Computed example of a mutant assay.
Amino acid sequence: MNLDKFKSIFTVLVLGIIGFIVHKILFHFLVPKAYEAGFIYSIELLYLFFFFFSAMLILALDKVKEKSINSVGYTFLLLTTLKMGIAFVFLKPILAGNLPKTPTEKMSFFIIFIYFLAIETFVTIRILNNKQ
């Protein structure tokens, strides 16, 4: 069984878990429990959502790499744009809210989004640098 295919997914998983743990620790000390309990989407759900999309994106990039290494960058841009559109749909209820917890929830959403975007970019660069 070729485990190199899953190396990129494993990287996303490990970095996602590390980010989640750091995020939860910071929330434990900095954010009131009532704020976190009132979030539209829990932190756990957001991490699962973004991990799922990151994993699908990386799997798609691995498939594209097998066919044509020259198309990996374009595929990354297309799938990232699609993910941004879907994330915006998820973000709309948060943006519509005007409660004291809303800025904290917006900031948390964007931090998770940017964190997974950075992970995807890192893994995509690794895929492009391994042109064998």
Rank of each mutant, 00 (worst) to 15 (best):
M1F: 15
M1H: 13
K5E: 15
K5C: 13
K5Q: 13
F6Q: 13
I9P: 03
F10W: 12
V12H: 00
V14N: 04
G16R: 00
G16E: 00
I17V: 01
F20E: 01
F20M: 00
K24V: 01
K24I: 00
F27T: 03
F27Q: 02
H28G: 08
H28W: 02
L30E: 15
V31P: 02
V31I: 11
P32A: 07
K33G: 08
A34L: 11
Y35T: 04
E36T: 11
A37D: 08
A37Y: 09
A37E: 08
G38P: 11
F39L: 05
F39W: 05
I40V: 15
Y41I: 11
S42L: 03
I43A: 04
E44D: 05
E44P: 00
E44K: 04
L46V: 05
Y47R: 00
F49R: 03
F50H: 01
F51K: 01
F51P: 02
F52E: 07
S54I: 06
S54R: 01
A55H: 03
M56R: 10
L57A: 08
L57V: 10
I58W: 00
L59F: 14
L59W: 09
A60L: 14
L61Y: 03
D62H: 15
D62K: 14
K63Q: 15
E66A: 15
E66P: 07
K67Y: 09
S68V: 08
S71G: 11
G73E: 14
L77S: 11
L78W: 10
L79T: 07
T81G: 13
T81M: 12
M84V: 10
G85H: 06
G85L: 07
I86G: 08
I86N: 10
A87K: 04
F88T: 10
V89A: 12
L91G: 05
L91R: 08
L91P: 07
K92F: 10
I94N: 04
A96E: 14
A96I: 10
G97D: 15
N98G: 10
N98C: 09
L99R: 12
P100R: 09
K101Y: 05
K101T: 13
T102A: 10
T102R: 00
P103G: 07
T104M: 08
F109T: 03
F109W: 03
F110L: 06
F110S: 04
F110Q: 04
I112P: 04
I112M: 01
F113A: 11
F113P: 03
F113Q: 09
I114E: 06
Y115N: 03
F116I: 01
L117S: 02
A118D: 01
I119Y: 00
E120N: 07
T121Y: 12
V123H: 03
T124G: 07
T124H: 06
T124A: 10
T124D: 05
I125M: 08
I127H: 06
L128A: 11
L128H: 10
N129P: 01
Q132M: 07
